[in-house]
């Protein structure tokens, strides 16, 4: 993908992206399609957008989706209640509806004079029909406001990043318009780089011991929620602050609460991992 004039994403100093991911991001930018990113929680889906924004020197607009979010809100909101209120008690000019039209995040990103990175975070949180309601707007990158008879057109097509946790199936028509990438859980090598981004001065031995323990825990299939990157970073931070020597990490797994968040997982961990270990160590002492 050389000699092309679109901006190319190559990761940013504070975000380690796999080669696959970078390629996919560049495909999405080149094709001007929204990029749909999926992956386990804690694999840096949301971080990706801010990293792209920083790497390309662009402003980022975040649209956090909640279960109650309506597609319309992203475009604009016609504040009828305010207008009604003003008509009775206010002194503003209620005859001009424009005062009561407020652009949503999508509208903002369309009208921005510079190209922006728009993050639509956790699109699957919203109602099933939500993505369908945005189809045309994302295609054309424009929309019409009937109240003011205005059409909002894009100045510069934003780079759209959409994240999803796969809690709901997204409609096919919507998927067809996106470029898709699944972020795999980082391999130990990539994880090492990620940790070093967060803790540049970390001791190699500590890092090695922590990673080894972390991936061992992740291999336990019976956990309801496996620890992910975000938890690992918290944990390593705790280890550093606590001044834990690296030999103790694998043996005792200190601050395990930073890694294992569910009560049932914790119980399982104590019973199956720690107890067994105590027994092994106990036997060794007897030798």
């Amino acid at each position: 993908m050389s000699n092309h004039d679109f901006d190319r994403f190559q990761g940013s100093p504070d975000y380690v992206a796999s080669e696959e991911l970078m390629r996919t991001v560049n495909v999405a930018i080149a094709l001007e399609r929204p990029l749909l990113v999926r992956g386990e929680p804690g694999t840096g889906k949301t971080m990706l957008a801010s990293s792209i924004a920083r790497a390309l020197g662009k402003q980022m607009i975040v649209w956090n989706i909640k279960s109650t979010t309506k597609a319309q809100e992203g475009l604009y909101v016609y504040d009828t209640v305010q207008r009604l209120n003003d008509s009775r008690f206010g002194d503003r000019d209620v005859s001009d509806i424009k005062h009561y039209i407020k652009l949503g995040k999508l509208g903002e990103s369309f009208t921005s004079p510079e190209q922006v990175v728009l993050l639509i975070d956790e699109i699957d949180k919203a109602d099933l029909e939500f993505p369908n309601d945005l189809l045309n707007e994302l295609d054309e990158m424009s929309f019409y406001i009937p109240e003011t008879r205005e059409t909002i057109n894009t100045v510069k097509r934003p780079i759209v990043i959409i994240t999803s946790n796969a809690e709901k199936e997204l409609p096919d028509a919507f998927l067809r318009r996106c470029v898709f990438h699944y972020i795999e859980f980082p391999t130990p090598e990539i994880m090492e780089r990620i940790i070093k981004v967060h803790f540049p001065d970390i001791q190699e031995k500590l890092l090695g011991a922590a990673l080894k323990t972390f991936y061992t825990l992740r291999d336990i299939d019976d956990f309801r929620k496996k620890p992910s990157t975000a938890e690992l970073i918290d944990w390593i931070y705790a280890l550093i602050v606590g001044g834990i020597p690296h030999e103790r990490i694998a043996k005792e797994i200190p601050f395990v609460g930073a890694l294992i968040k569910k009560e049932t997982d914790y119980a399982y961990f104590m019973e199956h991992v720690m107890n067994r270990r105590m027994n092994t160590y106990g036997m060794r002492w007897r030798d």
Binding site: M1, H4, R23, V27, A30, L31, H181
Partner: peptide
């Protein structure tokens, strides 16, 4: 558009565009 330089590019690009899960 000439985005594809080699087979690797093609693999990832085609996957990103064609496969949605």
């Amino acid at each position: 558009s000439g985005c594809v330089g080699d087979l690797d590019d093609f693999y990832y690009m085609a996957r990103a565009i064609l496969v949605k899960s």
